[in-house]
Write a protein that binds this DNA or RNA. Structure first.
Lengths: 109, 109
DNA sequence: ACCGGTACTTAGTACCACAGAATAGCGGGA
DNA sequence: TCCCGCTATTCTGTGGTACTAAGTACCGGT
């Protein structure tokens, strides 16, 4: 995509993936596919996996290993209570930012 | 503010400051004050100055040194043509992201 | 036996915001 | 006079995040 998108994703990709998990549980590969379908064609697979590991370390998700018919076992992540709270905080932060940026965009910025 | 905001500002603060400069020329200290007025109370001064140096190195701004009545000389930055184009690209990237996030937020995410 | 698709892992790189301190000029109060 | 506070900029080091690139592992079809 470009450097701008790369930098903007720092901090927002986290929220995007949390939101995806909030809708329903998912495993890493599935999430990367979903992101590509959403239009994030250039998000590296490794990035998503690293993100999920961080979620696990911070206790935002529960993990369950599920055998797959088509390859190595999947690690299915589901948002727990703490993760849900963190996601809500994300939306608040995001809203704060969008309000300011909308003002700038409209205001001849 | 918090870690979430810090990470989200990576990539967006750049656009925010460019938008401010797009409205009218300004110097570093003035921009930090304006940001605080906007509600970004915790943005470090050093961050803004570093950002402005990057703009200069990338040729997005023109710089003029202006003596101040109240301290050392100011470095007044103004957005040039290249900077304006970069800002427009920023808005496109930002819009792409907000559309996706709005969908996630509404869609039970 | 090989290859392509599925699924996860890891090492190293680049970039950005932050903390904190240093530098510099001016005005006002003790 | 000396120090403090406000204005204004610069610099060093740190942590966190996405990317590149490669590797590991398992399965099915040819």
């Amino acid at each position: 995509m470009g450097k701008q998108m790369t930098e903007m994703l720092k901090g927002t990709l986290e929220g995007i993936v949390l939101a995806i998990l909030s809708a329903r549980s998912a495993y890493g590969y599935e999430i990367t596919v979903r992101l590509r379908e959403m239009g994030f064609t250039d998000i590296a697979e490794g990035t998503v996996y690293a993100l999920l590991v961080r979620f696990e370390l911070r206790g935002l998700v529960d993990v369950e290993k599920v055998p797959s018919e088509k390859g190595p076992p999947r690690k299915v992540y589901s948002l727990n209570e703490q993760g849900q709270a963190y996601l809500e905080e994300f939306w608040r932060t995001w809203s704060f930012l969008t309000e300011r940026l909308e003002q700038l965009h409209k205001g001849g910025g």
